[in-house]
């Protein structure tokens, strides 16, 4: 079963071909970096215009790279839930048109479910049930995954997403790369390797809170305040130490809460996905903590951490195998809960 995946929920125009929900034949991501740099972030109208320009080329490139034609494609899966509304609409309009013109089943996919399936693509042996932490610039969710596509929300962020905290802090510290579309997370990750993660003791928000919810905006503020205090006092600004200490605080909260959930639910497996799961310190901290507790931890390969369409094809394939197909009236839902997807959102 060859599935064409399409993803345009934020600032990446992406298309991919995935066979049987597991073999990635192509995974094309056209980034909007040149525009992001100019405007210092994602401007929804500009991103949506760019998707409209790039969508055809991206789909064609995905077919070419895989050495396939539309004749070989058997279904079309598209991010239709969670993201910027105008951006989602371009992908859904494209997917619907291809599905209609070729008489192929259409499957609307929740973008975050795509991130969860990215880990299945990288680790086919990922067991169920497990606890899943999915973290990006747009979301921070801790989930109990009973079985494939069955999610119970344990906690989420009350303010900024973890990736958003990385982006904003990197921007404040002025350490974003001028020439690479790596985002704040990567910049902090790389700078942190040269720094002392114990140099500053930033707060660990919500760490002792009994819930599984997160909060990152206060942490970002305390970095900013400390930065300003040091400037006022004429002290040096060891950027690498600040970055490493900030990163350590975020990682600490994510690891401790995830493992507490694994413990409470008696889970022996943890899955970490989303853009922030590419962070090297997050990976090593999870590996150490999980090894100490005898819990297995799984990460997607680096190319599947950030937004891509292979993960959407994989998630769509699973839904299709269960007989869940969307109709030509499929609409976009910018804010949709992952657990207990409403049938109206899928159809």
């Amino acid at each position: 079963m060859l599935v064409l995946g399409i993803e345009t929920s934020c600032d990446e125009t992406a298309a991919a071909l995935v066979a049987d929900g597991k073999d990635i034949l192509s995974n094309i991501v056209a980034t909007q970096f040149d525009l992001l740099k100019k405007y210092g972030g994602v401007v929804p109208e500009i991103a949506a215009r760019r998707h409209t320009e790039l969508i055809g080329y991206t789909v064609e490139e995905a077919l070419d790279k895989a050495g396939k034609t539309l004749d070989d494609v058997e279904a079309v899966a598209v991010s239709s839930m969670q993201g910027l509304i105008g951006c989602l609409m371009v992908g859904v309009a494209a997917a619907k048109s291809i599905s209609y013109a070729r008489g192929l089943p259409l499957i609307g996919v929740h973008h975050v479910e795509g991130h969860i399936f990215a880990n299945r693509l990288s680790n086919p042996d990922l067991p169920f049930p497990h606890v899943c932490l999915t973290v990006s610039g747009g979301h921070t969710l801790l989930l109990y995954v009973k079985e494939e596509s069955s999610y119970e929300l344990l906690g989420t962020t009350l303010d900024d997403a973890a990736g958003e905290a990385f982006d904003k802090t990197a921007k404040f510290l002025g350490i974003l790369y001028a020439d690479r579309n790596t985002g704040g997370g990567r910049a902090i990750d790389e700078l942190s390797r040269k720094g002392d993660r114990l140099a500053f003791n930033f707060p660990r928000p919500m760490l002792r809170n009994k819930t599984y919810d997160f909060s990152f905006s206060g942490l970002k503020t305390s970095v900013i305040n400390m930065f300003k205090d040091r400037i006022a006092a004429g002290k040096k600004l060891p950027l690498a130490d600040i970055a490493a200490s900030f990163q350590e605080a975020v990682v600490d909260v994510l690891v401790v809460k995830t493992l507490r959930a694994a413990d409470e639910y008696g889970m022996k497996a943890v899955s970490v996905t989303g853009g922030v799961s590419a962070n090297s310190r997050l990976r090593s901290a999870f590996e150490d903590a999980c090894a100490a507790k005898g819990v297995a931890v799984y990460f997607p390969s680096l190319s599947l951490c950030t937004d891509n369409a292979a993960m959407i094809a994989a998630a769509g394939h699973a839904r299709l195998m269960r007989g869940e197909v969307s109709g030509l009236r499929l609409n976009v839902v910018p804010n949709s809960p992952l657990e207990g997807l409403d049938e109206r959102d899928i159809n």
Partner: peptide, 19 residues
């Protein structure tokens, strides 16, 4: 409408592409 023309143009061109 910016959203409207994006929907129409994307549908028009992707129908043409796929057919």
């Amino acid at each position: 409408s910016w959203t409207g023309i994006r929907v129409g143009v994307t549908v028009g061109k992707m129908l043409a592409f796929a057919s």
